[in-house]
Design a protein around this nucleic acid. Sequence first.
DNA 1: TTTAGCAGTATCCTAAAGGATAGTGGTATT
DNA 2: AATACCACTATCCTTTAGGATACTGCTAAA
Lengths: 110, 110
Amino acid sequence: MRNKQKQIQLRDVQDVIDIIGGRWRGAILASLCDKEKRFNELKRDLGNITPRTLTKELKYLELNKLINREVETRSTLSVVYSLTKHGRSLEPLIDSIVSWGQRHRKIVLG
Amino acid sequence: MRNKQKQIQLRDVQDVIDIIGGRWRGAILASLCDKEKRFNELKRDLGNITPRTLTKELKYLELNKLINREVETRSTLSVVYSLTKHGRSLEPLIDSIVSWGQRHRKIVLG
DNA sequence: TTTAGCAGTATCCTAAAGGATAGTGGTATT
DNA sequence: AATACCACTATCCTTTAGGATACTGCTAAA
C-alpha cells in the first residue's frame, strides 16, 4: 500500500522531471517567463540551440499545455510562443527548486 | 542583469534536475526515504535495475552528499545505504513536485 | 532583382545513458 | 564439497538526446 503510493508519486516526479529536465526545456520556459517570444527570438535568446531541437522542444511543451503557439497571419508570417496559465503555475515550483539547488551547491562545494 | 540572474537560476535548476532526474535517481532516493537499505535490497526494491547502473547511481548520490555508504565488516560483508541529513532535506521539494505533477496529469489528460 | 529575415524541415552524425550478460572474491548454509 | 547469497566489476550493445549543416517556401526591404 505504502509501496503502491510511492510508485504513483514516482510517476509524478518523473513527469515533472521530463518537463523541466533535459538540456533546453527549463531554459525555454524561463525565457518565456520573461515575456512571450517568437521562434527566432527564442533561438537568439537561448544562444546555441539548433532550430531542429527548438522545434521539437516547443512541440513537446505545447503538447503538455505549458505553452501556446499562435500564428499571426498578417502579410508576413509570425508565430508567437507564450506560457499558458498552467505553464505559469510552474514558476513557484521552479523557485523552490532553485533555492534547494543553491543550498545544495553550498553543501557540496563548501 | 535580469538575464545574468536567470542564468544562475538555470544552473541551480539544472543541478537539481541532474540529481532527481534520470531513470533511477529519484526512485533510489524515494526508496531510501522509506528506510536505509543494503545493495541487493535496493536492487530488489527497484525492480529491474542492473547492478552496473545501481553502483553508478549510488556513487553519484554519495558524491553529492545525499546518501551515506557504510560498510559493516562483521564476519560477512554488509553495505548499508541511507539518506544523509541533506538527502532528507529533499523530501519537501519532492512533495511539491509531486503535487504539481498530479495537477499537471489532470490538466494534460482531462 | 538580389538580399535578408521569418519559421521551420530534412539528413546525417556523435556522445552519453543505461540495458544484457557474465564473472569475481568473499562468507554462510546444506 | 557443492550451492547460494553478498556486493559488486567488466564487457558489450542499443537507444536516445541533441549537435552540425543544408535546405525550403514565404515576404519585405534595399
